[in-house]
Amino acid sequence: MNRAVNVARMQLINKWTFLGVPAIVIAGAFAVSWAIWALIPDSVETQMYSGAGQAVMWYFLVLGIQSLTLTFPFSQAMSVSRRNFYFGTVGLFALVALVISGLYVVLGAVEQATNGWGVNGIMFSFPWISDGPWFEAFIVYFMAMVLLFMIGFWAATIYKRWTVTGMVILWISVAAVVLALVALATWTESWPSVGLWFTQQTPLTVSGWAALTCVVLAGGSYLTLRKATP
């Protein structure tokens, strides 16, 4: 297990990858959003949303892919077992996601207290997500980040093992499943109940579904990685 911890330390050797770049992304996205809000006249009247806060989440999708295509082959040269690489990498990511989720909750609280950073902007505390107690928002942010990372990581393990063929088959399968579900809903004329189902979801149930997906992706990527070659 010590070596799994060392995998996490290895990922942090280049401070920029896991700490510097996300910090810059958050700070940069915030600065740009705030500048835009401040430039728009009458800003105090209407609320303005910025999705820039999500940028760091997409960055983690990229990280998930990179950690597999480049860091995995390197970890093999460091004589790290696939198991330790997996737990070290996913564990570190979960930890970083925890920290950033906490940061988002804190920033969301500041946002509400400062009347949207003084310009009525919304970047961290969105309605619906932040309507409930603080831990609901925390869980939503955390699960969203972990889900994006796992999607990237899982897709990358598939690519690593079966290369382009694997990717093509993977995305065709995903598209086929989605189409099949849409066709099923149309055929059984169940769109109203589908819509109802969606409106009934709360931040916590959405997080639950995300967690379930994460577990499936985590299991899938682990089994795929076990037989991957650098």
């Binding site: 060392n6 280049n14 860091t71 082959p73 004589s79 790290v80």
Partner: peptide, 27 residues
């Protein structure tokens, strides 16, 4: 065991210094 392959890949943006620090963690 240590096996650095001829076409070894390194994490993006890694410098030799980073690679050596990694090696010190595992060997």
């Amino acid at each position: 065991i240590c096996f650095i392959r001829e076409s070894q890949k390194y994490p993006d943006d890694f410098t030799p210094q980073h690679a050596f620090r990694s090696a010190s963690l595992f060997f």
